[in-house]
């Protein structure tokens, strides 16, 4: 019950961090004249959604008293996120050097 009452705080916090992070990344990319192209946008959105989903599963699994499920969800979803992030970084970096 207590968790239900206070959980909004964490969602607000996550919202602020995500919003701030998005603005920061946008400014950095703009400054470097590196607007993502279409497939970079797809990678960005996909990795963001997967990241949010992973976070929800991780926290919710502990709420469900299923620690093994929590850590494995971190692994199974974290690896694709990492791969997408690396791909995104390499793609952007290549164009940045090219500039």
């Amino acid at each position: 019950m207590r968790l239900v009452s206070w959980i909004w705080f964490w969602y607000v916090l996550v919202g602020f961090i995500m919003g701030g992070g998005a603005v920061l990344i946008w400014n950095v990319l703009k400054k470097a004249s590196l607007m993502p192209n279409w497939y970079e946008w797809i990678l960005l959105v996909l990795s963001f959604i997967t990241f949010m989903f992973m976070g929800q599963t991780f926290i919710a699994s502990f709420q469900e008293v299923e620690p093994r499920a929590a850590w494995l969800s971190l692994f199974f979803m974290g690896v694709p996120i990492l791969l997408m992030a690396v791909g995104l970084f390499r793609s952007l970096n290549k164009r940045y050097i090219g500039n």
Binding site: F53, Q56, A60, S61, E64, V65, E66, S73
Partner: peptide, 8 residues
């Protein structure tokens, strides 16, 4: 049979 916290 699961708790229903995880969207998964």
């Amino acid at each position: 049979t699961k708790y229903d916290e995880a969207v998964l």
